[in-house]
Amino acid sequence: MTQAPGFVVEFWGVRGSIPAPGSETVRYGGNTSCVEMRVDGKRLIFDGGTGLRMLGKHLLKEMPVEAYMFFTHSHWDHIQGFPFFVPAFVKGNCFHIYGAIAPNGATMRQRLSDQMLHPNFPVPIQVMQSDLKFYDLFPGDVMQLGDITIETGPLNHPNTSMGYRVTWQGHTVVYATDTEHYPDRVDENLLHLARNADILIYDACYTDEEYHDPKTPKIGWGHSTWQEAIKLAKAAGVKKTVIFHHDPNHSDDFLDGVEAQVRAVFPNSVLAQEGMILPVDL
């Protein structure tokens, strides 16, 4: 089904590391990473965490579906929803799937296939009857989907990760999750990727206090903090910052407190919530 022209971002999974359902995560959501961008009549999907299952249920009302799926990397919280993505099992749908080659040489096709092999899953990827088209990307690649420009860049994460910059009619959204800031400088790759973006979706799994906790530090774990998100946003001239990839231990009340602190120093900021829809100003 063809989408109406425009530029809208919708959040289907905003949690990091592992799904976190329960009474304390109702408002922000417990599903892992999945963000949809509807751009110029095309549907772009970023990452396939458990939020992808929810998106898939929604898409059953709109078939046939053609969508472009972009993976940052293949840690479980970014691919674990793919085997439960019902539209992929339906003949007549088409999914263009993009991702970088892993350091061990595995393509995204191989990694999505591997998680559906015995003994990890009961049925192989071959039972998916939709048309799955796979493409390899390399950090730094730039591609066009009609009038949409998609730039990629390397992120600082164990076993690598890749960020995406989506631009249409002079407006830009950047998806940069699973990246760790550097202690002594702003990441030049991220600075370039996020330059003058309308919206920056950034991995701020921790607070500075958690990141530097002397008893349980998170240094080297591959994630960043909301304080570093704001530092990057200011340096790159970003208009709106979205704090993303919430720690599974962060409750709704805790995240409310984080949002208040974030807005105090960068008013045009928001914490990602499942179901949140952000129009990109045109």
Rank of each mutant, 00 (worst) to 15 (best):
E259L: 07
H223S: 12
H246C: 05
A236H: 03
L271F: 11
V258E: 02
D247P: 00
L255D: 01
A229L: 05
H246T: 10
G222H: 14
A236K: 01
G257A: 05
V242L: 13
L278P: 07
W221Y: 11
M276Y: 05
I230D: 01
D256T: 12
E228W: 14
I243F: 04
P279T: 13
A236Y: 03
L255A: 00
L232R: 15
L271A: 10
A229I: 02
A236G: 10
V270T: 14
L232P: 00
V238M: 03
E259P: 05
R263W: 00
V265C: 04
P279E: 15
A233K: 06
I277H: 05
S224A: 11
D252S: 12
A235D: 04
G222V: 11
A260S: 06
A235V: 06
W226I: 10
H246A: 11
L271P: 05
V265G: 01
Q273K: 15
S224R: 02
K239D: 02
G222P: 03
A264I: 04
T241I: 15
I230S: 00
A260I: 11
W221E: 06
L232G: 00
S251T: 15
W226Q: 08
R263S: 10
I277N: 05
Q227P: 02
L232A: 01
S224H: 08
A229N: 09
N249R: 14
D247A: 07
A235N: 08
G222D: 02
I230M: 08
R263D: 08
G220V: 14
D252C: 12
P279N: 15
N268T: 06
V270D: 04
H223K: 13
A235W: 03
L278I: 15
K240G: 01
A236V: 02
D253V: 07
K240Y: 05
I230E: 03
P267Q: 11
F254S: 00
F266W: 00
K231A: 02
V242G: 02
W226S: 12
H246Q: 13
G220F: 14
G222C: 09
A272G: 14
P248H: 05
A229E: 03
G275F: 09
G275N: 10
H245D: 12
F244H: 15
D253Y: 07
A233M: 06
A233H: 07
T225N: 13
S251K: 10
G275Y: 08
H250M: 10
L271K: 12
F244W: 15
F266M: 03
V242W: 03
T241G: 03
M276K: 12
M276H: 04
P248N: 06
K239N: 03
V242C: 07
G222N: 10
V265R: 09
E274G: 03
S251P: 05
D256M: 13
G237V: 03
S224L: 08
E274D: 10
Q261M: 04
K231V: 06
S251W: 08
F244C: 08
K234P: 01
S269F: 01
V262I: 11
A233C: 06
D253H: 10
P279H: 14
G257E: 05
W221S: 02
T241M: 13
V270S: 07
Q227N: 10
V242D: 01
H245T: 11
V242A: 05
A235K: 13
E274T: 07
